[in-house]
């Protein structure tokens, strides 16, 4: 396999990294909103949050993407495949991240919440200034894990027509008939990206201060 082909894969992996990063971040924001809905005490919001998390964790991402890709034109929405991919991945990871955050929110010491209440914080202020930062810190390892899962899952957005690492590999295989070399190279690139993320995550985990005594 030539360097030219490998370089094409490397370039496509930038799209993989881009889509994954954006989706993780949007997913995180959505996950915090889902958590807020869940902690709001408002029944319909809680039901929606529970349904959302259960449905998107309970169905294959591939089916979600196929559904989204075919649903949008039917309801008259025309958007580029990049946006479709980001929407699909963000919604899916939001459900997983919300589930991870649930454990984090449960781990927030009640004393901290109570002292914020006593200091005159509104419930919304307490949520965003006390609960969210602590829950995020507590679930950082799960977030890093989720980032790796999404990097791998992003290989599926090839079905909505976005040219990222896996789709590029498929295209190259179709024109060169070297599936062994090309898919192995693609796998290697994923592996390296994930090793970097995992290592960086461990470093970050070590550097950040812990959250009091548990």
């Amino acid at each position: 396999m030539s360097w030219k082909l490998f370089n094409l894969l490397l370039e496509a992996s930038l799209m993989t990294i881009f889509v994954s990063t954006i989706s993780i971040l949007i997913g995180l924001v959505l996950a915090i909103l889902l958590s807020a809905a869940n902690l709001s005490g408002i029944r319909p919001l809680q039901w929606f949050s529970k349904f959302f998390i259960s449905f998107f964790r309970g169905t294959p991402l591939l089916v979600q993407l196929l559904l989204l890709y075919n649903l949008l034109p039917v309801i008259g929405v025309q958007i580029p495949s990049l946006v479709t991919a980001i929407i699909g991945l963000s919604i899916c990871t939001a459900a997983y991240q919300a589930e991870n955050l649930r454990g984090g929110f449960e781990g927030v010491p009640t004393g901290l919440v109570e002292s914020a209440d006593m200091a005159g914080f509104t419930p919304v202020q307490t949520f965003f200034h006390i609960r969210v930062p602590i829950a995020l810190r507590l679930t950082l390892p799960a977030l890093i894990n989720e980032a790796i899962l999404i990097l791998k899952a992003s290989s599926l957005v090839s079905v909505v027509g976005l040219i990222e690492l896996t789709r590029m590999a498929q295209n190259l295989v179709a024109s060169t008939f070297m599936p062994l070399e090309i898919y192995a190279s693609a796998g290697l690139i994923y592996l390296v990206i994930n090793l970097v993320v995992a290592t960086a995550g461990r470093q970050l985990e070590r550097r950040l201060p812990g959250v009091g005594s548990k």
Binding site: I148, K152, S155, L156, T166, A169, P179, A184, A186, N194
Partner: peptide, 17 residues
């Protein structure tokens, strides 16, 4: 290696490669 790569790539590697 298996845990660090997408299942889709493994599947294509086995089936097509």
């Amino acid at each position: 290696v298996i845990r660090g790569t997408p299942f889709l790539v493994q599947l294509f590697l086995l089936y097509f490669g």
